[in-house]
Write a protein that binds this DNA or RNA. Structure first.
Lengths: 331, 331
DNA sequence: TTGAAAGCGCTAACAG
DNA sequence: CTGTTAGCGCTTTCAA
């Protein structure tokens, strides 16, 4: 690449150590030599090789991030906040997308470790004891967001279950008497980490268990377009005021779109509630009722917690931030 | 971190070179020693230190990316495609956000170079001869997307001017007789690279120059909310069928939102056309008419072109991909 | 089939 | 105030 300290040393007829001192501005050094060294360095466009430095210091000042994908607005927002915070703290960010591929996730993590990132932020698709063991074996700190792994793996997030509970509570207070939980296929729970959705379902069920006179159902295949058709059945519950509680705003948006096309009125014919509060809701009408998952705050907190760990501190292993039910005009 | 080749060598009582040969699987080596080395490596969880390797090979297998921010859906989509393609080709991606801060952009680029990324993809906020010189001085290949710099800096994008020209042409064919170009403050053109918007304006003007009987205007301060109010004036051109041509979908969406609140009908009272074809349009009604800027294809092409350059090839310096005017229901 | 030696560019401990 | 030495973990001749 450019000029090295060795060459500067040769040109200035001093040792590399002296060059280093001039460059770093610390340690005793005569103003004259310092001046000379700096001017040569500057003139020749000296730039430190951070790779070489890292090899010695053991620090690369890189944070590795691995999430599902960033077409998903939730992750885009998350990543934006992670990058901002990391930059503020002097760290670079390596971004990798696993696309819900369990093996790819492992390859990516291994790759980041091999590249000697100082720490890792992960929204995992893997789960279970074996993966926990794997994460514990990794020689750099890891912080998990989004999908919980276990009490032994540092986590930052919201209380998904309570959030769903609160959302359902809101629907009940709005006098809905039939509430349908809409989420991705739960069958994948065996192979993929869909902790968040499972928890939300659980909060949904828990709140409904307190009611005698409220109908409920679960539609757990929102990954398939034809399931949209089944939603129409919900409308035939004419006597019951029905709401769809979607475990993710994108599901809710797809449903809104479908209803819009089909001439179904929201909330006239049916209520809809989402989850995540992704930014694009700003541009969608009617304004979707949803649950804020504090994604920016989660991201920032994850970075901070990770950096603490990288510095040998031991912050709380499980950090739960506040969620909020947001009333739009779809319920 | 973990075990090193040196230690494996010691344990197996061979030289580091031999260990290397076993690990790499090339060069002549006796099956017995190879087996032994591999089993020790495996048992002790050997992982290569890619940092050390990079120091020697001069390759980090990292691509550095610097864009505005990724709250912006356009960049989120771009980055997603960049990451996918890079991963396919065996590269890692370093992502950095300059947030329209010219100096931050330079710091970021310097940082990426110091970290020895193998190449850089940039959507620049800087512009001008000095910046061009700076980019040329960088010891790794750079490919620019989004905002053109000069003929000497490799670029991948669409023909912004022609795209705007075509969009206006479409509006004219729809018999609009007043067309208003809406864009961010052009005054920033002195300090920021807003090449795309400038080009679109130019295409707008060029097409209109061919018409005698079409009114036109430019509203160039869409960064300020109160400029939304001025849009109402456009409605009073009762005799003229008016369309707003927005240099960016997000402007169009904000306007749609504003009109929606104000009870203005689109396209009944006024037509709207956007630019970019960001994915979220899928969820917005009425369906926005817009121009596809082929962002995924630009991203993929940029990665491919960059990798060619990193391999010493010299692909075309300016790659122009096809845009497309998309008819929604807002004109 | 194996090993010795040199070196990537930098840092760090210690000595002068 | 300055220099020497050693070494991070790996690759790469060259020699045995």
């Amino acid at each position: 690449m450019g000029i090295t300290t060795k060459e500067i040393a040769r040109i200035c007829e001093v040792s590399r150590t002296t060059v280093d001192r001039a460059l770093k501005g610390k340690g005793r050094i005569s103003p004259v030599t310092k001046e000379k060294i700096l001017s040569v360095a500057n003139e020749r466009g000296y730039r430190p090789d951070l790779l070489a430095r890292s090899l010695i210091t053991g620090k690369t000042m890189h944070i590795g991030v691995c999430v599902f994908d960033i077409r998903n607005y939730y992750f885009a927002e998350m990543l934006n906040s992670i990058e901002n915070r990391a930059y503020e703290k002097g760290y670079f960010v390596n971004i990798n997308l696993q696309e819900e591929d369990r093996e790819k996730e492992i390859r990516i993590i291994d790759g980041m470790v091999d590249h000697r990132v100082d720490g890792i932020i992960l929204c995992p698709v893997n789960k279970g004891a074996e993966f926990e063991k794997y994460l514990l074996s990794i020689p750099v700190p890891v912080v998990v967001i989004g999908n919980y792994i276990s009490g032994r793996i540092p986590f930052v997030g919201i209380n998904e279950k309570q959030a769903a509970y609160d959302a359902v509570d809101t629907l009940i207070k709005k006098s809905y008497s039939r509430i349908v939980f809409v989420c991705p296929p739960l069958a994948f729970g065996n192979s993929k980490n869909i902790y968040s959705h499972e928890q939300r379902l659980s909060g949904f069920q828990e709140r409904l268990a307190l009611e005698k006179n409220i109908d409920s159902a679960v539609i757990a295949d929102m990954d398939y377009i034809n399931s949209l058709n089944s939603l129409k059945n919900e409308l035939s519950y004419g006597d019951r005021k029905t709401a769809l509680f979607c475990s993710g705003d994108v599901y809710a948006l797809n449903i809104l779109k479908y209803f819009h096309k089909s001439g179904v009125g929201v909330p006239r014919d049916i209520g809809i509630m989402g989850f995540d509060n992704i930014h694009i809701l700003e541009f969608v009408f009617p304004q979707l009722s949803t649950v804020s998952n504090a994604v920016e705050q989660v991201a920032v907190t994850a970075v901070d917690s990770l950096i603490k760990r990288m510095n040998g501190e031991e912050p709380e292993n499980k950090i739960i931030l506040k969620h909020r039910v947001l009333l739009g005009s779809t319920i």
